[in-house]
Design a protein around this nucleic acid. Structure first.
Length: 556
RNA sequence: UGGCCGAUGGUGUAAUGGUAACACAGGACAUUUUGGUUGUCUCAUUCAGGGUUCGAGUCCUUGUCGGCCAACCA
C-alpha cells in the first residue's frame, strides 16, 4: 500500500499520461497493448525496452498485452526466430495474454482488400517497381497517377482474384490503395497493399502467393485484437496517417498508434540487419555471442533479467533522439550482482609468491565468506599453501605513490588468510619479476588476528598446487566508437579489435561446482559467469563486467 | 526547395504557467580483510531572438540545429 502511494507520486511518462487520461475519461475500462516483433532475427536491448514498455503499461494499468508476430514477409522469416523471441520474453519475466500471428489474419486481410476495391479505394497495378517509383515523385515534388489507376471495380476484383490464384509472377502486379499521388506524405501516394510472392511461409506454407505489406497488416491486426494503444518507434510516424485512413475506410476498431523514440546504446549497434551481418560474416560467434547487444548475448554474458528491466526503467521513454551510455547498463548489472553473486578468488595474471616460513607440502583450509552482502550465504573453505599466485600487478618492485599492495619490505593482507611481508624477489634474465618471497606474520590469521598490525591492502590469491586452471574470456565493447552506425563508410570498420581477449587463469577449487550461467564475483576483478562452452575437464568463464576501479581510474 | 517530429547538466529522464530536480558519469572525504560495497559532500542544466503574462523550460512566433519520409522491408 505504502509503495503504491509512492509509485503514484512518481511522475508519469508521456505514454502513461495518455493512458491515464483515456482511463479516467472512461474511453476504456482496460487497455490492450501488444509486442509485435518480426520473426527475422533475435531480440536485442532495444526490443527489451519496447517489451518493458508494452508489458509494463499493462502491469501498471488494467489490461493485458499480446505477443504478435508480424510475419508478412515469408522470405526473411523463420520459426527459429519465433522460438528465440518467446524464450527471451519469458526470460525477461513477462507473460503474454495471447500468442498471435499476423498470418492468422491473411483471410480477413484478403477480405478487407476486396472491400477496399469495392469501395473504389484500391486498384491493381501492373507497373514494375521502377515505374512505380518514377511516378511516385519526391518529398518535394508531387507524383503522377498510374495508367492503371482507373480500372473498373469489376476488373480490379477479377485481377486481384487472379493474383491470389497464382496467375501472375512475382513483381508483376500489386494492389494499391487509391489515395492521392500529390499528398505531402509520401506514404499516402497510393501505397502498395499486397504484392505477389510465390514463397513458402513458415506458418501458412504454400497456401498464399500474395502477402500483405506492413501497412495493410499491422494496423488491421491491432484492430482485430482491439489493441487500444499501439506503440511503435518514431520512424513509423508518417505511417500513422495511413494507419488511421485504413481504419476509417474499413470501419474497423480504432486502435491508436503512438510513437516513441527508440533507445540507442553507445559502442554498439541495434539494427537487426547489422547484427545479422556481424553474425553471417563471422565477426562474432553467433547471435548469442556475449559481445552482442542481443538478449541472448547479454544473458550469456551474465546479465540478469532484473538488471535489464531495471535499465529499461531507468532510461525512461520520450520522443527525442538519444544515445544512452552503456555505463548505465553496467551500473545496473553491478548493482544487481553485488547483492547476488557468490565471491570467489581467481588470479588472472599469475605471479608466484613463496611463503618461506610456511611448511612445504602442508595445506591449511581457511574459511572465507561467500558473500558479505548476503548474511545467509555461508562460507567455503579455501586451501592455503606455501606457494601461491597473486596478480602480477599486485606487486611493484618500486611502488608508485599511494600504492598499497605488495612491494619490497611492505606488508599486505591475503584475503581470509595471513598478513605477509615481502622479503625479496627473483627476476629472470629479461629482468622480469618471476617470484616474490614473503614471510607470514605470526598471529595474523584472519578472524583471530592478534598481531596488532594494520595493513592498507588486501590481495586475492590462489594456491599454486590446489588451484584450478580455467579459460577466461574478457570482453570489451564491440565497437571502438560510440556511434558506429552513424560514422562514414562501413560500420564494421569501427569494430573494436580488442573486444575479446582469451586468457588462462587459475581459480580456487570451490569453483569446480559452478553451474552454467551461475554468476560469481571474482574478488577485486569483476563479475563472471560460467559459459556453456565449459566441459567437466575445462572451465570457461565470461567476464560480465569489471568492478569499479578507483585505483585504475586514478592512474589515468 | 516540401511535409512531419524534436531540442532541459557530459548522458538519460522529470518539473503539466508559480523555487529547474532525480539517476548515471565526474570530483572530494569517511568506512571497509575486495582500491568493491556503503555513507556524506560536491561540480554541472532550460538552443537563439521576439511576443503573451504579475510570472515562461512550459504558451505563441521567427530562426538555428538535429531526426524521419521517395523498399513489392518491418
Amino acid at each position: 500500500m505504502h509503495t503504491e502511494e509512492k509509485k503514484e507520486e512518481k511522475s508519469l511518462n508521456f505514454l502513461e499520461e495518455i493512458i491515464d487520461k483515456d482511463l479516467r475519461s472512461g474511453k476504456y475500462d482496460q487497455i490492450v497493448t501488444r509486442f509485435p516483433p518480426e520473426p527475422n532475427g533475435y531480440l536485442h536491448i532495444g526490443h527489451a525496452s519496447s517489451i518493458c514498455l508494452n508489458f509494463g503499461l499493462t502491469k501498471k494499468f488494467p489490461g493485458y498485452t499480446n505477443l504478435r508476430f508480424d510475419d508478412t514477409n515469408p522470405t526473411t522469416e523463420d520459426t527459429e526466430y519465433v522460438e528465440s523471441i518467446k524464450n527471451d520474453i519469458r526470460w525477461l519475466g513477462f507473460e503474454w495474454k495471447n500468442e498471435l500471428f499476423a498470418s492468422d489474419y491473411f483471410d480477413t486481410l484478403y477480405g478487407y482488400a476486396i472491400q477496399l476495391i469495392e469501395k473504389g479505394l484500391a486498384y491493381v497495378e501492373d507497373s514494375s517497381s521502377e515505374e512505380i517509383a518514377l511516378l511516385k515523385g519526391t518529398p518535394t515534388e508531387p507524383g503522377k497517377n498510374s495508367p492503371y489507376r482507373d480500372r473498373s471495380i469489376a476488373e480490379n476484383l477479377a485481377l486481384f482474384a487472379q493474383m491470389k490464384e497464382g496467375v501472375f509472377p512475382d513483381g508483376s502486379k500489386t494492389l494499391r490503395a487509391k489515395i492521392d499521388m500529390a499528398h505531402t506524405n509520401m506514404l499516402m501516394r497510393d501505397p502498395i497493399l499486397y504484392r505477389v510472392k510465390h514463397a513458402h511461409h513458415h506458418r501458412t506454407g504454400d497456401a498464399w502467393c500474395i502477402y500483405p505489406m506492413y501497412d495493410f497488416a499491422h494496423g488491421q491486426s491491432d484492430s482485430l485484437e482491439t489493441v487500444t494503444h499501439s506503440l511503435c518507434t518514431l520512424e513509423f510516424m508518417p505511417h500513422r496517417e495511413l494507419y488511421n485512413w485504413l481504419i476509417e475506410q474499413l470501419g474497423i476498431y480504432p486502435s491508436r498508434q503512438i510513437e516513441f523514440a527508440r533507445r540507442n546504446l553507445n559502442y554498439t549497434v541495434t539494427s537487426k540487419r547489422k547484427l545479422l551481418q556481424l553474425v553471417k560474416e563471422g565477426h562474432v560467434t553467433g547471435w548469442d555471442d556475449p559481445r552482442m547487444p542481443t538478449i541472448s548475448g547479454l544473458r550469456r554474458r551474465g546479465y540478469t533479467p532484473h538488471s535489464i528491466v531495471d535499465f529499461c526503467d531507468r532510461i525512461g521513454v520520450a520522443r527525442r533522439e538519444n544515445m544512452i551510455d552503456v555505463g548505465l547498463l553496467e551500473f545496473c548489472i553491478r548493482e544487481d550482482l553485488n547483492k547476488l553473486a557468490t565471491r570467489r578468488m581467481v588470479v588472472l595474471d599469475p605471479l608466484k609468491v613463496v611463503i618461506t616460513n610456511f611448511p612445504e607440502g602442508q595445506t591449511e583450509w581457511l574459511t572465507s565468506e561467500n558473500n558479505p552482502e548476503m548474511v545467509d550465504s555461508g562460507d567455503r573453505l579455501v586451501p592455503f599453501t606455501r606457494e601461491i599466485f597473486i596478480e602480477r600487478d599486485d606487486f611493484m618492485e618500486v611502488p608508485a605513490k599511494k600504492y598499497f599492495r605488495l612491494a619490497p619490505g611492505k606488508m599486505v593482507r591475503l584475503k581470509s588468510a595471513y598478513i605477509i611481508q615481502c622479503d625479496d624477489f627473483v627476476k629472470d634474465e629479461n629482468g622480469e619479476v618471476v617470484q616474490v618471497n614473503c614471510s607470514l606474520i605470526e598471529n595474523s590469521k584472519s578472524g583471530s588476528d592478534t598481531s596488532g598490525i594494520n595493513v592498507k591492502g588486501t590481495l586475492h590469491w590462489v594456491s599454486t598446487t590446489e588451484g584450478l586452471p580455467m579459460e577466461i574470456r574478457l570482453y570489451d565493447r564491440l565497437f571502438a566508437v560510440e556511434d558506429a552506425a552513424g560514422q562514414e563508410g562501413d560500420f564494421k570498420d569501427y569494430l573494436n579489435p580488442h573486444s575479446l581477449q582469451v586468457i588462462e587463469a587459475i581459480g580456487e577449487p570451490a569453483l569446480k561446482d559452478a553451474v552454467e550461467g551461475e554468476s560469481f564475483q571474482f574478488l577485486r576483478k569483476g563479475y563472471f559467469t560460467k559459459d556453456k562452452d565449459s566441459s567437466p575437464e575445462r572451465l570457461v568463464f565470461n567476464r560480465t563486467v569489471t568492478l569499479r576501479d578507483n585505483w585504475a581510474k586514478a592512474g589515468k
